[in-house]
């Protein structure tokens, strides 16, 4: 097997174009598992960890650009204030070892509906920057996921960065796992309140073939929340929100949990996270 380790972004794109069957690898926490279990046999590996342009993050006009090779550990350490939802989700990924290597871009590349980055990215309206030798394009996150482990990434493209708006209000993320650490989500939920535009973003994980937003629930909440008066959250409102979130899910029964449990748990998580976010908004 060939192993490429480009030292510039340009070089990475060229190799990608020349050899589309070279599998990109960043943290390797998905790729190496696939190789180990003989589930993938790529002709070559394209290691992106030597590319300086995609490390770290930057901020411009309230938008955070997360470089494709920025680890979860770095996201937690450096972006918890600006991107609380993504940092909360990052904290639940695997173990310290996995968080040191794993990246949000790799999570997108893998495209598993259970990936923990997806709900926060959906709830905050993130964008994915894709590039190839042909040029670059920007996709709204909800356009990126096409099916189970299928994404909009073209064979010659690489993810350069993920753009997430700095928080404009309280955000929360919660994940159900049957163990208290190192566990794949049975289901997960993210919520982001935008205090300026008085809108609500949501993201559901492990709840459908692709990560998705609960748009009806978002619209309902944007309309129904007492943004101006900052009244305590009415129980019926929280319940209705929970129902709408559960209704947005099309979960399956599998070895980790039943569809019925997933819907139930999503409703509970939606209610609870809304409650925490709203309390924070009221007290801000």
């Amino acid at each position: 097997m060939e192993f490429y380790r480009p030292t510039s972004w340009r070089e990475a794109l060229e190799i990608r174009a020349a050899q589309p069957d070279a599998l990109p690898i960043t943290g390797g926490t998905d790729v190496m598992v696939e190789l180990n279990f003989d589930r993938a046999r790529p002709a070559a590996l394209l290691d992106l960890t030597g590319v300086p342009e995609i490390t770290g993050w930057s901020e411009r006009e309230g938008q955070i650009q997360i470089g494709a090779s920025m680890s979860y550990t770095a996201i937690i350490a450096e972006l918890a204030d600006r991107l609380p939802c993504l940092a909360l989700a990052a904290r639940t990924v695997g173990s310290p070892q996995i968080r040191n290597r794993g990246t949000a871009a790799g999570n997108l590349g893998a495209g598993s509906p259970a990936g923990d980055s997806h709900p926060p990215l959906l709830a905050t309206g993130a964008k994915v920057h894709l590039e190839s030798v042909r040029g670059s394009r920007e996709l709204s996150i909800d356009q990126f996921y096409l099916g189970v482990k299928r994404t909009a990434l073209e064979p010659d493209e690489l993810i350069r960065s993920i753009e997430v708006p700095a928080a404009r209000g309280p955000q929360q993320f919660a994940k159900i796992g049957t163990r208290n650490a190192m566990v794949i989500a049975v289901c997960s939920f993210a919520i982001a309140l935008d205090a300026g535009s008085r809108t609500v973003g949501t993201g559901l994980g492990s709840a459908a073939p692709t990560p998705r937003q609960a748009t009806d629930a978002q619209d309902f909440l944007a309309e129904a929340l007492p943004w101006a008066d900052r009244d305590p959250l009415a129980e019926e409102l929280a319940n209705r929100f929970g129902e709408l979130v559960a209704a947005a899910a099309v979960p399956i029964d599998d070895v980790r949990g039943s569809a019925r449990y997933r819907r139930h748990a999503l409703a509970v998580l939606a209610r609870r996270t809304l409650g925490w976010a709203w309390e924070e908004y009221r007290c801000a």
Binding site: L88, R91, T92, Q172, F173, A174, K175, I176, G177, N180, A181, V183, V268, L269, R272, G275, W276
Partner: peptide
């Protein structure tokens, strides 16, 4: 709390 860092409860339930 139950759920740990996965942030599923702040004491509710």
């Amino acid at each position: 709390l139950p759920g740990g860092a996965a942030n599923t409860t702040h004491g509710e339930g």
